[in-house]
Simulated scan of single mutants.
Amino acid sequence: MTWLLRVLACATVLLAPLEGYLHQVHPHLAKVAPGLLIVSWAAQRVRLRQLPAPHPLHALLALFAVVVLVSSAVHAGDPFALDYAQRFLPFLLITAVLVDVVAREVPVRAVLAAAVGGALFAAVGALYSLVVDGEARATGPLEDPNDLAYFLVVALPLLIALPARRFLLPVGAVLAAGAAATFSRGGALALLCAGVWLVVRRGVSMRVVAAMVGGLAVIGLGAVVFAGPVLDRALAEKTHIAATNVDTRELRWQAAARMMADNPVLGVGPGGFRSSYVAASRNAEVDEQSPVAHNIYLEIGAELGLPGLACFLGAVAMAFVATERALRAGDRSMLAVQASLIAALVASTFLSEQYYLPIWSLVAVAIAAGLRLEESERDACLARHQ
């Protein structure tokens, strides 16, 4: 059963950025691996008569689920409430399950490698969609280029945690090129922040940074030479919509802030930003009546109130504390997890990414690493006393 849990946990993380491809095969195919993981995990715990490895995060996730359910019940008449509650709750459950299986059965680096592997496939698909399919901005496995960039830039820092260092530069170059092909400014800023964090914390040397920049320069030159018309068209389209994006996001952020101020306890309900946007924005966007907020913090706060936002930020804070403790104990892979979390949090300032796995799986891996450290410390203490 242990091998099955390892396969399913890694498959869940690996397939997350390929959701669009899976959806083309069958609308529910992306749910198969997470569903089987949850069932297998429950069967394993019943078989071994084990409770999940305890951690305060479990209580926080349970409270988060209560907030989602109560907010949904209060706003049951909203057309999006039930659907979005059903989308949100599985991420809380899969986070709890990943914490437990990574703390016990699944090696931390295996999960990180799965995240990089899935992102690598997605990056190849991104480049294919731009160069071969002639898309103005890379999409590939995800419909929105910005969501695709989110997966790729979050995966990039994880490379330094993997043992196969000789593949670091080529895989990193493909991931970076795929992210660049989305022309996502938020993704670029997120990657810059993660890179600065790694340099400051001495996770990567300036030589590696220079090599990555040089590799990207070569790729960029090749793109200009061999795909100049495609690149020109993509840049022209991005320039055309850039100013509009800034204006519309400002409108949506203001609307979300109003919703949160008017409904601080339980928000407007899961998915309620979409149904309440016209009123909150005073019909500011005639062409878009039910958008997303393009900011994970404002959207969670608007839809689930301050308690929901506090639960989300509390989970992230617990993850940072766990990684820092493991890092000080000598686990340098946690520096990569920290950088990836920073990339996810920065990118989520411009995107609504609570319905994608990366930020939840990173929190789970961080907490699981902390649990592994606590167990090793207990074992060492027992050994000394014996």
Rank of each mutant, 00 (worst) to 15 (best):
M1Q: 07
W3R: 14
L5R: 02
A9K: 06
A9N: 04
L15N: 00
L15G: 00
A16F: 05
P17H: 05
P17A: 06
L18E: 01
E19T: 14
E19A: 12
E19L: 07
P27G: 13
L36D: 01
S40G: 10
W41G: 06
W41P: 04
V46L: 15
V46N: 04
R49F: 12
R49W: 14
Q50V: 08
P52A: 03
A53M: 05
H55E: 05
P56L: 08
L57N: 01
H58E: 01
L61F: 05
L69Q: 09
P79E: 08
L82T: 13
D83M: 12
A85F: 00
L93S: 03
V101F: 07
V108D: 00
V108N: 00
R109T: 13
G125W: 07
G125R: 07
S129H: 10
L130V: 07
V132I: 15
D133E: 15
G134S: 06
A136K: 10
R137Q: 14
A138E: 09
A138G: 10
P141W: 13
L142F: 07
D147V: 09
L148F: 02
Y150W: 04
F151T: 00
L152A: 01
L156E: 09
L158F: 07
L159K: 09
L159T: 03
P163Q: 06
A164N: 09
R165G: 04
L168N: 05
L169I: 13
G172T: 05
A176H: 03
A176F: 05
A177T: 13
A181C: 05
A181S: 15
S184N: 06
G186V: 05
V196E: 03
W197N: 02
W197T: 08
R201Y: 02
S205H: 10
R207H: 09
A211W: 11
L216A: 14
L216V: 09
G222L: 15
G228P: 11
P229W: 12
D232Q: 15
D232A: 15
A234I: 04
T239E: 12
T239H: 10
V246R: 10
V246A: 12
E250R: 13
A257W: 14
A261H: 08
D262N: 09
N263A: 12
G271T: 11
G272Q: 07
G272D: 10
R274G: 12
R282Y: 08
Q289V: 09
S290T: 13
V292A: 08
E299M: 10
L304I: 00
G305Q: 05
G305F: 07
L306K: 02
A310E: 02
F312R: 03
G314M: 01
A317N: 01
V321Y: 05
R325P: 01
A329V: 01
D331Q: 04
R332E: 08
M334Q: 10
V337T: 02
A339M: 04
I342W: 08
T349E: 04
L351E: 14
L351R: 03
Y355H: 15
I359W: 02
S361I: 06
L362Q: 03
A364S: 09
I367V: 15
G370N: 03
L371F: 04
L373E: 06
S376L: 11
D379N: 00
Q386H: 11
